[in-house]
């Protein structure tokens, strides 16, 4: 089997936020691509789907909700999406879920927190392969 890195697409119109997320994710060994809005993100997805998406909400041209609806309408392998917002509004969270997000985190996401969720969603966090589980299987 070919050796590839898990690919993550970071979608945010703020370069600072992209750099922040990229820094965290690349340090953890992921291949990170960036898109500055929903439209550009869709172009990237058209080239090849990703293993995970980190999506901002408020972006020009096509916002995060719009991007997710488009993404989830595509006939491609669907990967988890983390929506990152600055507002802790319950309404926004519901809209995010309806649009197709799998997680709703509030900015700024601490590096440890982001990584913990990314690793979990990708099935990469350390598995508790302790004796109990072993016997269970």
């Amino acid at each position: 089997m070919g050796v590839t890195l898990k690919r993550i697409l970071v979608i945010d119109d703020a370069a600072t936020v992209r750099l922040y997320h990229r820094g965290i994710l690349e340090a953890a060994g992921f291949a990170v691509s960036e898109a500055i809005n929903g439209l550009e993100a869709l172009e990237r997805v058209a080239e090849a789907p990703f293993d995970l998406y980190v999506v901002d909400i408020n972006m020009p041209k096509l916002d995060g909700y719009g991007f997710l609806r488009e993404l989830r309408s595509k006939d491609i392998p669907q990967a988890p999406a983390i929506m990152v917002s600055t507002e802790a509004a319950a309404n926004d969270q519901k809209l995010a879920y309806v649009s197709g997000a799998n997680l709703y985190l509030i900015k700024p996401v601490r590096p440890e927190r982001l990584l913990a969720h990314v690793l979990t969603l990708l099935g990469l966090s350390v598995a508790p392969r302790d004796p109990h589980q072993g016997r269970h299987q």
């Binding site: 989830r72 392998p77 669907q78 990967a79 988890p80 999406a81 197709g100 799998n102 997680l103 690793l119 979990t120 969603l121 990708l122 099935g123 990469l124 966090s125 350390v126 598995a127």
Partner: peptide, 13 residues
């Protein structure tokens, strides 16, 4: 599908 993928990832984790 995305939810299932997320659940699968969590399972594996």
């Amino acid at each position: 599908q995305a939810a299932a993928a997320s659940l699968a990832g969590t399972c594996a984790s």
